[in-house]
Amino acid sequence: MISKTSLGMIAAAMFGATLFAAPISCLAEEPAAATSHVAPIPPPQDWSFAGFFGKYDQAQLQRGFQVFREVCSNCHSADHLAFRNLAEPGGPEFSIEQVKALAAQYKIKDGPNDAGDMFERPGRPSDYWPSPFANANQARTANSGALPPDMSVLAKARGIKRGFPWFIFEALPGFAYQEQGADYIVALMNGYEDDAPKGVTLDAGQNFNHYFPGNKLMMPKPLSDGQVAYTDGAPQTLQQYAKDVSAFLMWTAEPKLDVRKKTGFRVLIVLAILAGLFYATKKRIWADVQH
């Protein structure tokens, strides 16, 4: 009887093994076809806001805002970014006076007034970041047909799949990683090539970038060394600009990150205490039951 059972078990186990050997060997044939146009994985950067205790670096966000304002915002909109956000806790934390002065430098379309006309007035902190173009069609026309994407949540909209088995680790405490979008933006800023490699032909207006999917990008190289004048002594290099602006874009995409992680830390501690108390109580209650 026992041998019959174990025979069954062995048969089942062998069956299972064969079953899974087949799909795995099928998968093994696959990669050759797929790899040719896949962009490389952007190298992970060292982010202050990564990890369990991560929080934004205020000075970095202020520098990043400067890069965004002087460079990116000439073509990109950021519709969900309000001036007042720049003074909120967990952000660049400019003073409310600085934000008022900043907003007043921009002309905001308002109206209609009593005469029925639209008019322009100086911005207020409650206003949203003005778009460089009136609408998407105008933006396309001004940019050789390519629409510069809105930057409000861009850093969360550019996820990089690192594939099996990394995707499992990226969820786990200690390995958790949610900064692929910021990594990608840094890599993209650094990934331009003046001349396309052999075998790649670019159409008019296209630029070659190692990290852009498909490698052909309409956006010309936006940042170079020395382009933005920092006032806080940070290095004025492409790499520094790229990191700062990526951090800033991560903040515009996830402005509540600081409070989120801080709250989460407390929540987990409370839950751990609760779980411990529940377990002790449960043990007490079950002490007299054989189970």
Binding site: V270, L274, L277
Partner: peptide, 16 residues
């Protein structure tokens, strides 16, 4: 000791 545990558990649950 048993009562203390029950009270602590109840109180912690209520606060959380």
């Amino acid at each position: 000791r048993r009562d203390m545990l029950y009270i602590a558990t109840g109180a912690a649950t209520a606060v959380a």
